[in-house]
Amino acid sequence: MELRLNNLTKQFGDFTAVDHVSLTMSSGVYGLLGVNGAGKTTLMRMICTLLRPTGGQILCGGRDIFKLDGDYRKILGYLPQDFGFYPEFTVKDYLLYVSALKGLRPAVAKRRVRELAEGVGLSKHLNKKMKKLSGGMKRRAGIAQAMLNDPKILVLDEPTAGLDPNERIRFRNLISELSEDRLVLLSTHIVSDVEYIANEILLMGEGKILHQGTADELIDSMPERVWKCRAEKSEVPALMKKYRVSNIRSEAHGAELRIISGEKPSTDAVPEEAALEDVFLYYFGEKGVDDSALI
């Protein structure tokens, strides 16, 4: 299964949300990493045929997905960022309803609902109303609905948003399990979500794919180095102004800083091994700092 984006562009009036993106994806997990407003959701909504591109094409197996219409959506699973549901439906009703929308025969749907509920840990909650579920459970119901038709293309938009660290780890592992023999496109602004499970990471900013590759390739692509140094508390603001600081740890008499810089920031600075988080900060600057990313 190959999904090819050719010069894909989406404009809303004068604003270009997705700017001439060209990309080819096949099986595996693709992590779409970018700050909020980078164009990730717009790109994903076009891949899910919910938005029509202003320019360019999205080809699935060489055919335009908008022409394939239902035949394309037959192999698509989508968990949107704002995952809405029917509050009065039970989990079972909700999943059976989505199964019907996906064209599953009733007998097959019942079996899939049972299997997926087991897989995402919702077996005991099938008769619970959707509105009674916790945030994590709702997300699990969301991934279950996306998987109902055993999709060849699974699109997950910020699937871990709003989840606590435990839920996030559990969810990440679940996605990893589900990624066999399919194309999984997962968007996030949280580096740790994709660092370990993505075969390929796409860094997106201002509507463009800025860099792509494995985590190691992206780390290697960074032209600056990562340093660790200590400084007095009074020196920290100046250092933050001068360098990209990916982490600060307060200590009794000062602070330990993790700095990204082409030059040695201080005489006592020692080089550190770069991580994907440093790459993210390097490419997206101050905007890259996110409390949740430090978890």
């Binding site: 919910l50 968990l79 929308l101 064209g103």
Partner: peptide, 8 residues
């Protein structure tokens, strides 16, 4: 999004 990205 889920509704209109489904097959039917």
């Amino acid at each position: 999004s889920v509704y209109f990205s489904s097959r039917f």
